[in-house]
Amino acid sequence: MLGYQHGDSLAHRLDPRTKLAVQLTFAVAAFAHTDPRGLAVLTVVTAGALASARLSPVAVLWGYRFLLPLLAAAVLFELVTLGPPWLDLAAAVDPLLASYRTLLIVAVAAGYVRTTAARESRAAVQWAIPGKPGRLLGAGVGLVFRFLPLLRRDLAAIRDAERARLGDERPTRERLQTVGAAGLRRAFARADRLAMALSARCFSWNATLPRIRFRAVDAPALALAAGLAASVLV
């Protein structure tokens, strides 16, 4: 599983907004140039992005292995025909290119996920969406990051208890209901305690966040983003 890891790679030192700009323009450029030549150029860009995050392509593929059957299915569905000549190579080319494009976009996004702390992302959100909506989203995203591990543990405990009572032999609907109800009850109980604690500690609209600023190292990356955006028009 890919997640944030502390480090000092080039990608770690970039401003989160720069990294988001590169990801967005990369995805748009990949959609505009889904042909062998375009994807070859973008493969080089991807390799650079992964190197700047010191992330190996194998780790990315392993982290997103759940995506692979879906991509393979799209290619196979067009490749195999129900009748002679059984294999239609020409029809499979477009899905194949589209699947490869997905892998490239995934790899670039993995670089962001690995090198950007939640607090920096939150600061970027509040920069991009000014006013109270941005602050609500920023605070909410921070809470999701913070509580995800706890709620995962809650659910794991609930499922352990279920298994100990042979609950895993019950029908799927009953199991979903048990786990869903118990999970929701615990989440709401946590939410109500947390909301009270936040109010008691003067939960405010103007919390202090890490200051994000563009530095010299952002310049080449921003130029790359501009180049990717410009390539769409060519």
């Binding site: 599983m1 997640g3 995805a27 997103y64 991509l71 997905t102 995934v106 996920v113 950007t116 990051f145």
Partner: peptide, 20 residues
């Protein structure tokens, strides 16, 4: 923004630009 909340514990902008 990187929380592993999508199916298979994946994350990232690519999920939005992906087939699902």
């Amino acid at each position: 923004l990187g929380a592993p909340v999508f199916s298979g514990a994946s994350a990232g902008l690519a999920e939005i630009f992906g087939p699902t």
